[in-house]
Design a binder for these strands. Sequence first.
DNA 1: GCAGAAGCTGACCGATCGGTCAATTACCGT
DNA 2: ACGGTAATTGACCGATCGGTCAGCTTCTGC
Lengths: 200, 200
Amino acid sequence: MPTDAPSPTRVRASDELREVALQQFATVGFAASSLQHIADHAGYSKSSVLYHYASKEALLEAAIGPAIDRLETLLREFVDGGRGQAARAVFIERFVDFLLGNRLAVHTFVNQGQSLRGLPVIERANTAIRGLADSICDEHATIAEQMRFGVALAGATYTLVAGATFLDDDDARPIADDDVRDALITVLSELLLTADGLPD
Amino acid sequence: MPTDAPSPTRVRASDELREVALQQFATVGFAASSLQHIADHAGYSKSSVLYHYASKEALLEAAIGPAIDRLETLLREFVDGGRGQAARAVFIERFVDFLLGNRLAVHTFVNQGQSLRGLPVIERANTAIRGLADSICDEHATIAEQMRFGVALAGATYTLVAGATFLDDDDARPIADDDVRDALITVLSELLLTADGLPD
DNA sequence: GCAGAAGCTGACCGATCGGTCAATTACCGT
DNA sequence: ACGGTAATTGACCGATCGGTCAGCTTCTGC
């Protein structure tokens, strides 16, 4: 049998380790996530982790890098597409989908973007976030206008991201992702599309 | 000379250490803030830190406890005062003032409330935040309604809190606190006072 | 002046950290 | 069956962690 069509029960060790690591980074933090804990939780030894990933930092890069790539793409598309209402509406939808599809990674680099400064992958994330803030709040904008964008994007991000903190442990109340998506798009649209000071 | 009226240049060592520790906890995270670093940064020895505070955890408690007290009071007042528009307006103002007056502490227990679970002082903070979310979003509320509150409070919190992450390092752009306060109150009022589904 | 408390420190402890390395095992094409 | 590569592991390293302790200095009440 050729090399492809891997057995469905047999997942690649590196993928398994990356996912366990992402879970750990998001829930207990990068600094508090020891390679030993990650290895134990995944059923491997610490040495195996360092065989698949050259360092703890490389593991972080593998875990959250793709999400940062997606965010950069999202930002580039938005910058190229202008800032009209239609472009904003498209961006809002894509941004919410991005958040819903990358909760753990976003949780990690949003909540720890400050404390992990200096790590290249984190700098990349912070640069993307800063670029988002800058591009969305063009040069001339009232403080209230800036604050509206800040509250909207940070609020959307943190509402999803902090759901893990304050809703996960207690009784399961699994609101369907689709409902969350719709509600979030509604609220963001209210904030960002009906603003008074829109550039016509 | 009696014990009071301490020399103005001579600040109490315990206060100095607590403030340096809070700064560290907020900027590099609790796990990554070693007692050694805190001591060095404050100009004392690690042993001195442990003389004034029984443990690293006690130091965290001293650093963020008062802010949590204030948040609990705020929450209690809001619960007792009803949920009408007037009460909400008062709460919004007090909440923004609370955020502005406790940025570092809020930054610490909001961003690390997940990773530091298990520490009593953090549990207290998480309980308060959960209580805030519950009390503000009463039993019957649409998902969009809940999301509006979530985005508003989380957005306001994170906008101030993350300002440290993304605005501190680059060129100083010190918007006056008063302006931020006004803008934030405006945006929160838009979100929380004009909502369609208000309980009349 | 002196006893004693308060403040402060260096030496030290066991545990754990991220990371290296040599050895072992599992797998695969030939 | 065999040789080579990939995967996995335990032993080990220096550094640092939070915390303890005995001892040193400084201040204060009498």
